[in-house]
Amino acid sequence: MSRVAEFLLRRKGGKGWHWTDIVTWVWLVGGLFIMFGPAVWLVGSSFKSPAALAEFPPSILPYVTQKATVEGYDKPLDLYDVTLPDGSKATLAEVRRIGIISQMVDPQKPGEIIKVNIAERTPVRQMSFATGNYTEPFTQFDFVRYLWNSVFVTVTATLITLVVNSMAAFALSKYEFRGRTFAMLLILATLMVPLSVIMVPLYSIISALGLFNNLWGVILPTVATPTGVFILRQYMLTIPDELIDAARMDKASEWQIYWRIILPLTAPALAVLAIFSVVWRWNDFLWPLIVLSRKELYTLQVGLSIYSGELNVQWHFILAMTVVTMIPVVLVFIFLQRFITTGIAGTGLK
């Protein structure tokens, strides 16, 4: 362990390469591959045709074997580069394969069958992006519907979260009233009651309200987040009370104080909460899985998991849809990463 400490305290510009520098770089570069590798592999795979996906060993980039339509054969035939017994090379189409002998035909002279040892042929391959993986789910599945459901849930839930949480946070940070501490404790106590604990009775409440198989049944239970109230309240506590006094002297109503003074000044915290909320709601899985049982109501997450659990998994579509599901979160990650990391470091909340 003393070495660990050494490498902690070592400073850059020291005496050349210390072993801890090597550990650091191995860890970092290894991390780069382990963290990004799977996602990159996913994106690469999502452009492969079903045939290419079934290959082993798989190729890293999406290749497709070239095919040719030959006179006298119904289906297009796979093309191969063949080294002929006389040493010359040719591009032939394979008719069938028997054992280690492949019967081939020259597309230009379809009448004549040439027998070739399979060791002497290599498929003619070309890089090809199976964009159909992306376009077909739009027509073949209810993909657009899922996408819309997810967007609707995410946007609506986030907007309601922002309004409702900020109002509560305002009341809890800027007013003195009996029961304030109690309300705050009650909200904090919610942290102890995650969905997994109350899903059975919550389901019965949602059903009683007629919200089963309804997107609102997904949205409403998520919007009174204790985390949101907590983040916003902490921030609002730093807004000086004199501003509110000044606004009251300026004949502002309490509602105006809320939306013309407090809300604009809480913008940075609201932005953080909005980002969190978007990511949370977009990624929600267990609750939508319980509430939504009709296909046309599935969110992306539910739809993906249902399709991937089917007997005949159509991986080429699943992979492409997974990539599409990732896109918003990746965009958030790229553009708003700083917000999120400071938000987490500042509040310790996820």
Binding site: E242, L243, A246, L265, A267
Partner: peptide
């Protein structure tokens, strides 16, 4: 006000 309490936004 002592802190002026100007609306910063």
């Amino acid at each position: 006000f002592q802190s002026y309490a100007l609306y910063p936004h």
